[in-house]
Structure formats: C-alpha cells, structure tokens
Amino acid sequence: MWHMLKKPFLLSRRGPATGLVVAVLASLTACAKPQPGEEFNDPYEKQNRAIHEVNVTLDQAVFGGGDVPKKKYLPDPLAKGFSNAAYNLSMPSAVLNNLLQLNINGAAKDTLRFALNTTFGVGGLMDPADVIGLYAEDADFGETLHVWGAPEGAFVVLPIGGPTTERDLAGSIVDIFIDPLGQVFKGRDFVAVEGVRIAGQVGNRQEYSDLIDSILYESADSYAQMRLTYLQYRHNQLGIEEDVSDPYEEFYAAP
C-alpha cells in the first residue's frame, strides 16, 4: 500500500548510458556516512525540509488537501487503469534488475506477468496476473546496488520527486538509462510511454489519497513522518531487518 512512495516522481529518460552509470557507481563511495547516535542518516535535513515544504505546497495546489478542497483528475476506474499500466511498464526494468541480482525466479515471474498483462490485460490497463496470483517481484537499480553491497547513504528529498536516499537516487538515475523500454520506444513513442507513467502517478496519488494526506496534511511534522514512513517501508522492501528493541520489557520491568 505504500509503493507510491518508492519511486521518484518525474525523471525523464534519455541519452547514452555507460559513462554515467560508472560515474554514479563511483560517486556512491562518497555517500554520506551515518552519524553515530542519530536515528536517521539525514545530514541535509535543513535543505531537505526546505524542499519538502515546496513539494507539499505544490501537491496541495495540484491535488488539494489540508484546507484546500481535494481535486480529482481521473474517474476511479481510469485512475486504477493508468496506475496498472504504469506499473506494467516498469516490469521490463524489474526483469533486468532481478537478473542483475541473480533472482532468476523473480525475473521469470515478472516476464510472464508482463506478457500476460500486456496482452490479456489490454496493454496493462487491467491486471489479470494479480487475479491468478502471479504477483510482481519489484526490483530497481537502487535495490540492485543494495544487493551488491553499496551503502544506503543519506536521506534526500528531491524537488517534485520526494523522498529517496543517495543509493536510491543513484539507482533511479541508472534505471533511466538501462530501462529496456528506452531501447524499444524512441521519439514520439517514448513520449507516450512517459505520458502513461505520469498518468499512473496521478492515478496513484488519487488512489492512495487518504494515506498520503494523513502524512502530508494531518501530522504535526509531515517531514519527520514522511522520512520515517519512507525509510521503514524501503528497508522492509529491501529485507533490511530493523533494529529490534524491546520497549515493552523495560516498561513493565519498572517498579
């Protein structure tokens, strides 16, 4: 249910790849290290908060929320359709990343899923794969970097893109260039692909409106709440075990 928080919004996909991939990988070694004793690795908190403020203002202007009435751009079934189609378009990239992580089973599942939803699901607008229990195994280059042992780096908020980490940002940039769809669709076709992705983001924003609004407009510190939610969700997705403290033990041990 949190998956719309995962990918930076709006990143255009273009140009030659190899040099950039190498540069991104090299820059990761310069990732900010966590400060001992800090709950989050967030050395850019001041800048992040400023960008977050702008993002929330933009979100409110476009989608409403808080004191501003909600705006709906798509009827619900269409929102779901675009959300499905955009997700389906991420499958070739997920297949590639699963392969890079040596997750052959995941790659096979996502391939089958992509074939099924693109054909019987009318270009991915519907999701017959889910109906028969063939669920996606999400994978992106940020995850691949994690599997390869790269450090997470600092928490970062991107203008429009929202929450990410240095590792996930590097991953998103690499994903732009290695996306198999970019090799197949050129020029105007690729613009259409991008259009579907953006419509999918609008669909997601609408579908998960309650959840997103509760973070952005109904919390005392939306930045802190968003950071916590993003990092916990992402760690769960990457299979990073959270530090298991036992608050309960202490509480009832007190006399």
Binding site: A224, Q225, L228, T229, Q232, R234, E242, P247, Y248, E249
Partner: peptide, 27 residues
C-alpha cells in the same frame, strides 16, 4: 506483560505504528 493478552505494536509493510506515533506525539 500488562496482565492481559494485548497487542502493543502494529507493523504494516515495515511501517511501525509505535515509531510513527512517537514521532507524531513528540512533534
């Protein structure tokens, strides 16, 4: 430990109620 069998935390897809509420109440 409270004397009754109760749940004290709920984690939905990794997102932890106790830490979310700690952040919220703290703020």
């Amino acid at each position: 430990k409270s004397g009754r069998n109760l749940f004290f935390n709920l984690i939905i897809e990794g997102v932890n109620m106790l830490s979310a509420e700690r952040t919220e109440i703290g703020a």
